[in-house]
Each structure stands twice: as C-alpha cells, then as structure tokens.
C-alpha cells in the first residue's frame, strides 16, 4: 500500500511529518485555549448571577 518513495523518502516523509506536527500543535493549542475561555466565562457568569441574586 505504501508507495515506493525511493531516494526521496526522507524529503517526502519529512514534509508530511512536520506538517502533521505543526497542524496537530495548532489544533491542540486551539482546543486548550477554547476550553480555558469557556471555563473562564462560565465562572465569571456564575459569579455575576450569584452577585445579582
């Protein structure tokens, strides 16, 4: 199934590998920041509701 990349295997697999790493890093960072923002907002809204009675 895996195509024969010959003498260029390092260049091709390196390109795909670095791309996968960079995209995975961006995705993880995006999801972590989203979770943090959601938690921060939920906590702030809860405190406001409590304060407003």
């Amino acid at each position: 199934m895996m195509p024969d990349l010959g003498k260029y295997a390092f260049a091709v697999l390196g390109s795909y590998g670095v791309t996968a790493l960079l995209l995975a890093g961006l995705l993880v960072l995006t999801l972590v920041q989203r979770a943090r923002a959601k938690r921060l907002l939920a906590e702030a809204e809860a405190r406001m509701e409590k304060a407003d009675g």
Partner: peptide, 13 residues
C-alpha cells in the same frame, strides 16, 4: 471560527 469564538468568550469574561 473556533479561535474567533474563543476570543469573543475571553473578551466577554
């Protein structure tokens, strides 16, 4: 879209 929604939530918080 995900990141813009995050920015809006952060700004609101």
């Amino acid at each position: 879209l995900v990141r813009a929604r995050t920015e809006i939530r952060t700004r609101r918080a």
